[in-house]
Simulated scan of single mutants.
Amino acid sequence: MNQPNDDMNGKICVVTGAARGLGRAISETLARAGAARVYACDINLTPALGWMEGYPNVTGATLDVCDPAALSELSGRILAEHGRVDVLVNNAGITRDALLDKMTESDWDLVLNVNLKGIFMMTQAMLPLMKVQMKGSIVSISSIVGTDGNIGQSNYGASKGGVIAMTKGWAKELARGGAQIRANCIAPGFINTEMTQAVPEKVLDKMRSRIPLGELGEPRDIAEGVLFLASERSGYITGQVLKIDGGLVL
């Protein structure tokens, strides 16, 4: 376990897709960094019930990021309990991979709905709670597929590229009037999550051979990047895309 620090001292944080994988690592890292409260949001919280017991400053919240009523309920809850949001991490996302001539309209719509529209709706719902103090950090998880493309991921790449475009617009828009609301992206490469652990070893070896640092990344690598962009250490950084990929895309 990483050593605790105080980068998030007293901050109110919201993380989507938080039950497992990257979202779990991000939530745990923010909690260990001294957050007053981390709202760990996921459409299915069951995988989080065990690890959340070790963090009294983490609160689970069942949430569909595409459900306006659920978003309004969460926003109202946080307003009543804390009156503000300091950090929003948009991590929830899905894949439905297929080659272009095999991809269905439903595959396209579902991925764009969750990965792009969901981030738009989540940020829109939390923004008033950042505007309370005219300050905050929005960190959205994109992907190297959104910056450089990948075979069989037209929908995923479009959604993640769209997240980058939205983020750059938000960085300009949300800093108007003297506000210090920052928006940045992280673009992970191949990360050792439940998804990659199901990949055959020979495929993983091929993936590793493409990475200059020679190994898949770990969820903590992404979480540490989120912590940096969420904290005051990056107070003069906005509208940027941080690639964490072991040098895969140069």
Score class of each variant (00 low, 15 high):
C185H: 06
A179N: 12
G178V: 15
R32D: 07
L74P: 13
P47Y: 07
D221C: 11
Q153T: 05
A40H: 00
W51S: 07
P188C: 10
P200E: 07
G161A: 11
D86K: 13
L74T: 07
L216H: 04
I141W: 02
E53H: 05
R233W: 03
G217F: 00
G149S: 05
K135G: 11
G76D: 14
N155E: 06
D97S: 10
K202S: 13
I94F: 08
G214F: 10
D86S: 12
L30Q: 01
G149T: 03
G10E: 12
C41N: 12
L127N: 08
Q3W: 12
T167H: 07
V15D: 02
C66R: 13
T196F: 11
G17P: 05
M195P: 02
Q133K: 13
L116P: 00
F228I: 06
G162D: 01
N155Y: 04
A19H: 01
E194Q: 10
E73G: 14
P47H: 07
E218N: 10
Y55E: 05
W51H: 07
I78N: 00
I141V: 08
V15W: 00
R96S: 12
I222C: 04
M52A: 08
E215M: 11
D7L: 15
N192R: 13
Y156D: 06
P4D: 14
G162Q: 00
G217D: 01
P200F: 08
R176D: 09
M52R: 04
A70K: 09
A187R: 01
A183T: 07
E73F: 09
V58C: 12
V58P: 04
L204H: 05
A158M: 05
G225N: 02
